[in-house]
Amino acid sequence: MPKTPLYAAITLGSNSFNMLVAKTLGGRPHIIAKYKRKVRLADGILYNGSLSEEVLLRGLDCLFMFSHMLKKHAIPADKITIIATATLRNITNADDFCQRAIPILGYPIEIISGMREAELIYQGMVATTSGIGRRLVIDIGGASTEFIIGDGDTVLLKNSLAIGCVTFNHKFFASFPFKQLNFDDANSEVRSVLGDHLGALKQLGWHSVVGASGSVQSVAEILDNRKLPGTITLDVLKQLKQEVLSQSSASMLDILGISEERAPTFAAGLSILLALFDLLEIDSLHLSGGALREGVLVMLSKR
């Protein structure tokens, strides 16, 4: 009986670089291994729009690790897909990064549009998250947030906007202690960026909301650590905001249940979530089982 071939999906986000190794079983991707590193690429965007050499090297170092894992799993080049998102879409030296990555990975990086990213996020959500009816999916990344409304496999609306936990961290939460004004300013920015998109989202409507991002994951992990229900509500977010405002250290590590990995951008991600709950009048939100990287796996499994 022939051996089921392995394939790999690598996603280079503005906050995290991820790699999933999988094989197809019963027509669906079955994950064999996961690798992840908080590269925080968006941290390194300079005033001239280029990525700093220090952060660029941080990204390439992660790709060296991924390359080692590709060799370890013996994945052929034609079974690898490498997708890059917002930061590499926007920086002026993206070509330099991609050219320097090719000798490391042996395979080119595809920088996808925000709309394509939204489609893949939705596919990843549908493949991993049970539910029926029209759903609003929100994926808060490091430098962009994708909004998708869909029903079953059908995407009805999609948007990718310049709202991100790493960029908001620089803009609104760069100095400690954090104050209510920081959250107010973040809310105003989200309102401004949403603009006319807000009306289109609300006009189409939804039955439930799914969050697919590290910002949502961090809140879900806190609730799980505290043995609380996993449903994210406005009351939950307001309570966490009060805990952020009462911190004695910028590390945020006194917040019960927060992970050291997610703490640096927690306040910024929380501010975006609070703004979206307010502006979109969201009652509750549940964590998605998957997003972009799972969507890429679904795409690969169909090839």
Rank of each mutant, 00 (worst) to 15 (best):
Q217K: 13
V210W: 10
A268D: 09
F266R: 08
I232R: 06
S213R: 02
A275M: 14
F266A: 05
K227Y: 07
L245P: 07
V244Q: 12
E243Q: 15
T233G: 02
K238E: 11
D224A: 10
Q239T: 12
S246F: 03
V236N: 10
L234E: 13
L256N: 14
L270Q: 03
S208N: 09
G211D: 11
I258K: 06
S213I: 02
L223T: 05
L253Q: 14
I272M: 06
K241Q: 11
K238P: 00
Q239N: 12
S259T: 15
S218I: 01
L228I: 12
S215E: 12
I222T: 10
T231F: 02
A263I: 10
T265F: 10
I272D: 04
I272P: 03
K238D: 08
L253H: 11
S218N: 04
R262K: 06
L270M: 03
T265P: 04
L237I: 09
V236Y: 09
N225A: 12
P264C: 06
V210D: 14
K241P: 01
R226S: 09
G211N: 11
I232Q: 08
T265D: 07
S251L: 07
G269V: 00
D254W: 00
L245M: 07
A250Y: 04
E261H: 02
G257I: 15
S259Y: 07
R262V: 04
P229F: 12
R226A: 12
K241N: 01
E261A: 11
L273N: 00
V236Q: 05
I255P: 12
K241F: 01
K241D: 01
Q247R: 09
L245E: 09
I232Y: 12
V236S: 05
G257C: 08
R226Q: 15
N225Q: 04
A212Q: 05
P229I: 15
A268L: 06
V219A: 11
S251T: 15
V209I: 02
Q247S: 11
S251F: 09
R262Y: 03
V244D: 13
L270N: 03
P229R: 13
A275R: 14
V210F: 11
D224C: 00
S259R: 14
T265A: 08
S208R: 08
Q239A: 07
R226K: 07
D224P: 00
H207R: 03
V209E: 01
Q247C: 15
L256K: 13
S218C: 03
I258H: 09
S208M: 02
P229Y: 08
V216A: 15
D224V: 01
E221R: 15
A212L: 04
A275E: 15
L237W: 15
G214A: 09
L256F: 13
L276Q: 11
K238V: 01
L270H: 05
L273P: 00
L274D: 15
A212G: 05
L253M: 14
L276H: 04
V210Y: 14
G211S: 13
G211W: 11
G257K: 08
K227L: 11
T233F: 02
V244I: 09
L276E: 10
V236L: 03
V210T: 14
Q242P: 00
A267D: 11
L223G: 03
Q239K: 09
V210H: 11
P264R: 06
A263S: 13
